[in-house]
Amino acid sequence: MTKNTGHANIETNEPHWIEWTTGTLSALVILAVLIWIGRDALMDRDTSPDLGVSVLQVEARSNGFQVLFEIQNRSSQTASQVTVRGEVFEEPKLVEAAETVTDYVPGHSKAVGGLIFKTDPRGRAISIRAISFNLP
């Protein structure tokens, strides 16, 4: 407990066992965080992102055909301003293309976005990939 008289706060000399338990548990939590981040500091030092895009779903919406995609970043390096380009082919000819920019794809994380096409990509060949990025 803390005794608060006037403006001087004196920590009492006989702490309750709960104070020690809380303190010890807290120290363990901090230690675990230090070990986790420290392990990454030593072992996981990528210098460029590793971006992969996969299609989650294609739906007909009022403004066309909406393709929901997910970008995964398998590296520990975050990518920013990731441009994703989607193309629909009527083999071998390109029918339609759409692009979007995602703000961030953090390391070992994913981001979700969407592209809208006028042509129905279902039943046609579709390619969605990241074509550019910046490092934050």
Binding site: T2, A8, N9, I10, E11, T12, N13, P15, E19, W20, T22, G23, T24, L25, S26, A27, V29, I30
Partner: peptide
């Protein structure tokens, strides 16, 4: 805050500062 007379300074670190940080 001050510690009561005769209390080692690491007591406050473990009892207050570290839990506070968590």
């Amino acid at each position: 805050h001050d510690l009561a007379e005769g209390t080692p300074s690491w007591h406050a670190l473990v009892r207050f500062t570290i839990p506070g940080y968590v």
